[in-house]
């Protein structure tokens, strides 16, 4: 048995592209150390030098935010599911969703390269 960890797209460069990896640990902190032994650099993206979770990272154990379960000290059990997500506009997901859809179009990609202000248009 192990703990299943879901990796967001932007951090998959550390997992060889894998969406889901497995790890073990009694706490979230232990799990991240374990993961870092096979996916070097991952932990540093999630935990600050001061040893706290990065402000713009949300980690959930079985769909519950770990910041309310003890953060890095949150207890884990075999079979738990851990999900890592970037904090997206604190739930201003309307923009996020639209942004995501647009990222699939070449036109939108070009607009992003041209810079935000250049492509503001009144339809």
């Amino acid at each position: 048995m192990a703990i299943e960890v879901r990796i967001p797209t932007i951090l998959r460069s550390y997992t060889g592209g894998a969406k889901v990896v497995e790890g073990s640990g009694d706490t979230l902190g232990d799990l991240l150390v374990d993961l870092d032994s096979r996916h070097a650099g991952l932990r540093a993206r999630l935990v600050t030098d001061a040893g706290a979770l990065h402000r713009f990272v949300n980690v959930y154990v079985n769909d519950e935010d770990v910041r309310f379960l003890g953060a890095l000290d949150a207890k884990l059990n075999d079979g738990d599911s851990v999900t890592i997500l970037p904090a997206v506009a604190g739930g201003a997901f309307g923009f996020a969703a639209a942004a995501a859809i647009a990222q699939h179009s070449a036109a939108a990609a070009a607009a992003a390269i041209a810079g935000p202000r250049a492509s503001v248009t009144a339809r």
């Binding site: 967001p8 797209t9 932007i10 951090l11 993206r45 990065h54 402000r55 713009f56 990272v57 769909d63 910041r67 309310f68 999900t83 997500l85 970037p86 904090a87 997206v88 506009a89 604190g90 739930g91 201003a92 997901f93 996020a96 969703a97 942004a99 995501a100 859809i101 990222q103 699939h104």
Partner: peptide
């Protein structure tokens, strides 16, 4: 909070995240 599909989290960098100024955990 809603958790959307993969596409929605297509930020390029963790530092592009945003927590509303109103939020107090």
């Amino acid at each position: 909070e809603p958790r959307y599909g993969e596409l929605v989290y297509g930020l390029r960098n963790i530092d592009e995240g945003y927590v509303p100024e109103l939020y107090d955990a």
